[in-house]
């Protein structure tokens, strides 16, 4: 594998990789892509969201899960930072609080791979009775 020392080396690396791997077009299958958003506002960053995000990006790639990891702002759960929002294809988004690397690993292994719920979910998707009724009327 080429040692990358400059921008030009990336091209060599690309040529080597293209022979080896089938380039996945991201956004090709949005219906099967797992979306992960890491809350990266001041509160999140100060409690270690960067390490969690790097961990998620590396591990999801390593474990061969078709996924997109992006950043989002503060969701208003500063007390529970770092928080992440996981959207499995065809599911409602779920927010997990107090996510460190260990928790992130558990979320990947149990929730993302098997759809099994784990501790630490913040009930963001609950609707109040009023909201439900309003939707019913529309």
């Amino acid at each position: 594998m080429t040692k990358v020392k400059t921008l030009a080396d990336l091209k060599k690396l690309r040529e080597e990789l293209q022979k080896k791997i089938h380039v996945r077009e991201s956004g090709d299958h949005p219906e099967s892509t797992v979306q992960v958003k890491v809350a990266m506002a001041t509160c999140g960053i100060a409690s270690g969201a960067k390490d969690v995000m790097v961990f998620l990006m590396e591990e999801l790639e390593k474990r061969g899960i078709d996924s997109v990891v992006t950043q989002t702002g503060c969701m208003g759960y500063c007390y529970a930072e770092p928080t992440i929002e996981v959207t499995l294809p065809g599911h409602e988004p779920l927010v997990f609080g107090f996510v460190d690397k260990k928790k992130a690993d558990e979320i990947i292994e149990k929730y993302i791979k098997n759809g099994e719920l784990v501790d630490g979910i913040i009930p963001i998707t609950y609707q109040s009775i009023n909201e439900n009724q309003e939707e019913g009327q529309q």
Partner: peptide, 13 residues
């Protein structure tokens, strides 16, 4: 330079 290869690809990263 990378063409379509994502930045998260292990070797690229």
């Amino acid at each position: 330079e990378l063409g379509g290869i994502p930045l998260t690809e292990k070797e690229v990263m």
